[in-house]
Amino acid sequence: MRDAFARAFYDASQLNSKLFMVVADISPASKIANFKTECPSRFIDVGIAEQTLIGLSAGLALRGFKPFAYTIANFAIYRPFEQVRDDVCYQNLPVTIVGMGAGIAYSPLGATHHTLEDVAVMSSIPNMTVLAPCDPAETEAAVHFAAGHTGPLYLRLGKAGEPNLTAQAQPFEFGKIRQLRPGSGACVLSYGPITKMACDLADKLQAERGIPAAVYSVHTLKPLDTTGIAAVLKQFPLVVTLEEHVERGGLGAQVKQLAWETAAPCRLHTFALQDRFIHLYGSHQQLQQAHGLSVDQLYPQISNPFQGTSLHG
């Protein structure tokens, strides 16, 4: 995803001389290095100073430029939260805050380097838009959208090595859930790199129960495609949400709310990170498992028709 982000930003910068790359102690890699060489005045490294990363970016935007403020996700939004809220969102400025390695991708580094609750925190600020692409190709589409966006945007990225999931998908459309694969008996809604697990879960449902399960990327978390999700809740007898984020303020809680509001007839499972800091310093996959998130842990829960939330009997 990092490389896809860099490529897409570089490509967008060729078309738009207003783009700035503002980083906080991130070495320019991939095509960002090309951008720095070719446009040195539009590449700014503020060092380890995240409040200034965001404040300075707001200042650039106040004068008509379009900065991408880029660092590891937890540093990009937690340390400078007030700058994100006051300088960017309150003034409604076109600053894209790029949070790399979001969720628990930096598993061995501990919770100081995780964002368990970033979608909830960013989505709660007025004027903010939140995008979380599921793979490198969707990341490129999201970057091109962000480059033309006229307001604050939080771009939640993974790290590196994510597989491509969208080769056969419908085109990316901002604000709309995106079908990655069709299905009828079940549907999994997910976002970010954990969407790969959603696809694997769908494969297992098909292989072991013969249930053709659809998978959607909910890349736009704010504004949420309530119409599209309501249609999913109406169409499928079993709906699953899967996210690398706590449920409160995440996709799961919002889908549950929508299911109640629309009197959805489906069974609904919401899988998310647990509401706690887990001191496990293993691989990304091992930390996901500690939170209860793996195909082997999830499958038994959804394959039993008597489990899950059935909101309206």
Partner: peptide, 18 residues
């Protein structure tokens, strides 16, 4: 917009660069 202290100078840096 100001009011919370310590915000003006970082924003000013961005305007200077712009």
């Amino acid at each position: 917009s100001t009011g919370s202290l310590g915000h003006g100078l970082p924003m000013a840096l961005g305007i200077c660069l712009a």
